[in-house]
């Protein structure tokens, strides 16, 4: 442990030292260049560490995964699209894909809906910042901890035993249940149980962004509508909501990506069993439990392809923003 501590201290002090030294060193290196070339060379020296990390940890491995997905288990033989054929002919894979679709639709709807609702409601009360903190705080904790917290909510004991899970005890009061929440596979109820946990975590994220946009709306617009006799609901539908749409789109794209990448919650709460598997966890299982890197790579590429449209959408939006700057 002391060894680890020593390493950490050296890293925390040493690495910034090295990096600052590097940037200072670039000016020394630039002295070797003629004055004319300095502005051309300098940016690349400043970018070099970042480009190195991005290249090594994002660009190279993504290309590597695409190539690996066309190879067999051991990476020795080229198998063409066999790994993809396996994926799309595999019931477990398709079930994971179906669950990701449920995640995508419902996590996005729930988070954007609740975020919008809370942002609009808290705007009208004095305890706004307190209420926001309460909704927002789950975003700071790990999904593993959130999983632990919510297992205590969904906990099921057979009828006759005292129900110690919060939800089964609550519905027991009105004479319903108990319901084995995380074991109901009909209509993917248990996938919804997991989506609810993520909704609990991410609604605060949506609320914060939507609330910031809401505060940016010129109050005179609403005041004018009020003077003209519009009620609150009409003002919301006619003025506030249309102005919030771009913000809602930003939140929705973020949630779509979060839904597609969902892993921690599934790994922690169900391990992907009981028809709750998702692509990311399926890839992990194929990688570690089965050890077939070719197939696991194909699964990762399917996930990547699902995300590509969002990537281009974001780039388009970014360009539009830059054009305005």
């Amino acid at each position: 442990m002391t060894e680890k501590l020593l390493t950490a201290v050296i890293v925390v002090i040493g690495v910034p030292g090295v990096l600052v030294g590097y940037i200072w060193g670039t000016e020394q290196v630039l002295r070797l260049f003629p004055e004319r070339l300095k502005p051309t060379v300098r940016p690349w020296l400043w970018l070099a560490p970042a480009l190195g990390f991005l290249g090594l940890f994002l660009v190279y491995p993504t290309i590597g995964t695409i190539i690996r997905s066309l190879q067999d288990k051991f990476g020795k033989e080229w198998v063409g699209i066999a790994n993809y054929a396996w994926f799309f002919g595999n019931d477990d894979a398709l079930s994971a894909l179906k669950n990701n679709l449920l995640w995508l639709v419902f996590l996005t709807l729930f988070v954007v809906g609740i975020g919008l609702l809370v942002a609009v409601l808290v705007d009208r009360v004095r305890y706004e910042s307190f209420a926001k903190s309460v909704i927002f705080v789950p975003l700071a904790i790990s999904m593993v901890a959130a999983g632990a917290i919510w297992l205590n909510m969904w906990l099921y004991k057979p009828p006759g035993e005292p129900q110690t899970g919060t939800l089964n005890a609550a519905i027991g009061v009105v004479g319903v249940g108990p319901i084995p929440w995380s074991q109901v596979t009909d209509f993917s109820v248990n996938t919804f149980m997991l989506i609810i946990v993520m909704t609990w975590m991410w609604s605060g994220f949506a609320m914060v962004i939507i609330s910031a946009a809401l505060k940016g709306i010129n109050p005179e617009l609403m005041e004018a509508a009020r003077t003209d006799g519009a009620n609150e609901l009409q003002i919301f539908r006619g003025i506030v909501f249309p102005l919030l749409v771009p913000t809602l789109v930003v939140v929705a794209t973020t949630m779509i990506i979060t839904a597609l990448k969902a892993f921690d919650i599934v790994y922690t709460m169900t391990g992907g069993q009981l028809d709750t598997n998702v692509i990311a966890n399926f890839m992990y299982q194929e990688m570690f439990n089965v050890g077939n890197y070719g197939r696991a790579s194909a699964v990762a590429v399917v996930l990547l392809i699902a995300i590509v449209p969002i990537m281009f959408f974001n780039i388009g939006r970014f360009r539009a923003q830059e054009a305005v700057r």
């Binding site: 491995p61 993504t62 995964t65 996930l303 969002i310 990537m311």
Partner: peptide, 12 residues
């Protein structure tokens, strides 16, 4: 690169 899923980088 903001949205590249980590899963696509793990194996290499």
């Amino acid at each position: 690169l903001l949205v590249v899923p980590l899963q696509a980088t793990l194996i290499p």
